[in-house]
């Protein structure tokens, strides 16, 4: 993943070509294609949309509609470390909301955004399926259970090294 960096126009075009080809340029596989594209580039750049539309024989509006509907697709590159802390009911019952608020304040970052220096992104998530071990979180995809401030800080620190 090319975190922090924006892809160049030719990189974007090449990536779109590759992933659309992998899915036989099938429009019904648009969501799979967008996942693959985000895996390659770290985000779904705005400028990829017209290229996708052309490849899949869809309108730009249709592609935009899909990309903007789903929470998974980032419009900008994420920071070097991405933290997800669940804020659904089970995690709330174990104090997730104050934990998230505190974490964001301590790290100078707003929920859903990336820190100015590109080090950290905090993404909202509603349920990671680990509700018996709340609060649940993931740091760069690594699952964590019964998290508290100290565990989160240690995991972020480790991921930044």
């Amino acid at each position: 993943m090319m975190n922090e960096e924006r892809a160049s126009a030719s990189e974007i075009e090449g990536a779109v070509e590759t992933v659309c080809g992998r899915h036989g340029n099938t429009p019904s596989e648009l969501i799979e294609i967008l996942h693959d594209l985000q895996d390659m580039l770290g985000y779904v750049p705005e400028s990829a949309l017209p290229v996708l539309a052309k490849k899949l024989n869809l309108s730009r509006a249709e592609v935009h509609g899909v990309v903007s509907f789903y929470h998974d697709f980032r419009h900008n590159p994420a920071g070097r470390v991405t933290v997800k802390i669940c804020s659904a009911e089970a995690c709330q019952s174990m104090g997730a909301l104050p934990l998230i608020e505190e974490f964001c304040r301590r790290n100078g970052v707003t929920m859903g955004e990336t820190k100015g220096d590109g080090s950290l992104t905090v993404e909202p998530v509603y349920c990671l399926g680990n509700c018996a071990l709340s609060p649940a979180a993931e740091v760069n995809g690594r699952p964590m259970a019964r998290v508290d401030a100290a565990k989160l800080d240690a995991a972020v620190k480790e991921a930044l090294v």
């Binding site: 669940c86 659904a88 009911e89 089970a90 995690c91 509603y126 349920c127 399926g129 680990n130 509700c131 018996a132």
Partner: peptide, 10 residues
Amino acid sequence: EGDSGTFADR
């Protein structure tokens, strides 16, 4: 399985 409090499918 998006419901909070469920993880049986997973």
